[in-house]
Simulated scan of single mutants.
Amino acid sequence: MGALDGRVALVTGASRGIGAAIARRLAAEGAAVAVSARTTAADESRFAGTIAETAAAVEAAGGRALAVRADLSRPADRAALVERVEAGLGPVDVLVNNAAVTWFTPVTEFSDKRFALMFEVQVTAPFDLARRVLPGMRARGGGAILNVSSRAAIHPPVTRAGRGGTVYGMCKAAVERFSTGLAAEVHADGVAVNALSPNRVVPTPGTLHHGLTREDDPDAEPPEVMAEAALALCRPRDPLLTGRIAYSQDLLTELGIAVPA
């Protein structure tokens, strides 16, 4: 018996990296997993990984998966995503908002278009998807919403030269405040809402592309650590595990769960 047997999970940004690792881990605990991203074919992105590959990995391990292409910057795609998941797998019990589009550019050089797109995907989309799945969660008496954040949400020292991460940090700070506020709103309904960040940079195609880490970085955090921490926050609700701004390794240590190597 898995911790998520009989439950349906939706993971966005699941074509690679943290999202793909979380999808595989939730599926290993019995969840039927819907994986979503814009990338469905290998030639559609500069980065390796597609939702079809993630779904295939889940199914090869004995799980059940549904790949749904969606551009989360488009409200119509967000609505269609939830409708397709509900039609194909059933009502969503676990929502993991991981999708992101990011540019590291100084404020004075940031275009309006990129600014709007980052907020649409990283802030508005989690807000919208949560609103769409919450009525069902409330009706069933429980559920979990997990918003993937970053240490970029923490205020940087003024004396440290920036790398153009101000807008990214703004998005993640907004997501964290959304998480704690929503957690308070739905606490009585049995729905857990949390934000989760890695303790250290995770080597994914995106972080490698932006030069935030390297493949041989001994201090980097494997994506499986985030996946294990995500599972801990998406299990049937523990009254203490909601409204958290959690950090992966710290959370696992607190709960007495071994940190994956």
Rank of each mutant, 00 (worst) to 15 (best):
R151W: 08
M137G: 03
G142T: 11
E86Q: 11
R151K: 14
A100K: 07
G88H: 12
R114I: 14
A80F: 09
V92D: 06
D71V: 14
E176N: 10
P156A: 15
R140I: 10
L89P: 07
V158G: 08
A65H: 05
R160M: 10
K113G: 05
R140K: 06
A76S: 09
V158Y: 12
E83W: 02
P156I: 15
P75N: 00
D112W: 11
A161M: 13
T166H: 02
T124K: 13
A76P: 04
P156C: 15
P157R: 00
P156L: 15
A174T: 08
F178L: 09
R84G: 04
R78D: 00
I145A: 01
A100S: 03
V175H: 01
A174P: 05
D93K: 04
C171P: 06
E83I: 00
V68A: 04
S111D: 08
F127K: 08
F178C: 05
G142S: 13
D77C: 10
A139R: 13
A161G: 15
D93H: 03
R84T: 09
A67W: 06
M170A: 07
R131L: 11
P75R: 01
N97R: 03
L81N: 00
P91S: 04
V148T: 09
V158E: 11
V85P: 14
K113Q: 10
V121Q: 02
T105V: 14
R131N: 02
S73W: 13
V175Q: 01
F115W: 12
M137Q: 10
V94S: 02
T159M: 13
R177P: 01
R151V: 15
R177G: 01
E120I: 14
A174C: 08
V94N: 01
A87E: 07
I145G: 04
D93A: 03
P106G: 02
N98P: 09
T108N: 07
T105F: 02
L129Q: 06
V121C: 08
E86P: 14
F119Y: 10
P135L: 14
A161T: 13
V92C: 07
V85Y: 11
A174L: 12
D112L: 14
V123M: 04
F115R: 04
A99R: 13
A76N: 02
R132Y: 01
F110R: 12
A70P: 11
G142F: 11
S149M: 02
A125F: 12
F110G: 11
G165Y: 05
R177D: 00
N97M: 01
V148P: 10
P106M: 12
V123Q: 01
R69I: 09
V133R: 11
S111Q: 10
M170Q: 04
D112F: 12
G162N: 13
R74L: 14
F110S: 12
L129S: 06
A70C: 10
F110M: 15
R160A: 05
V96S: 03
R140S: 03
H155V: 15
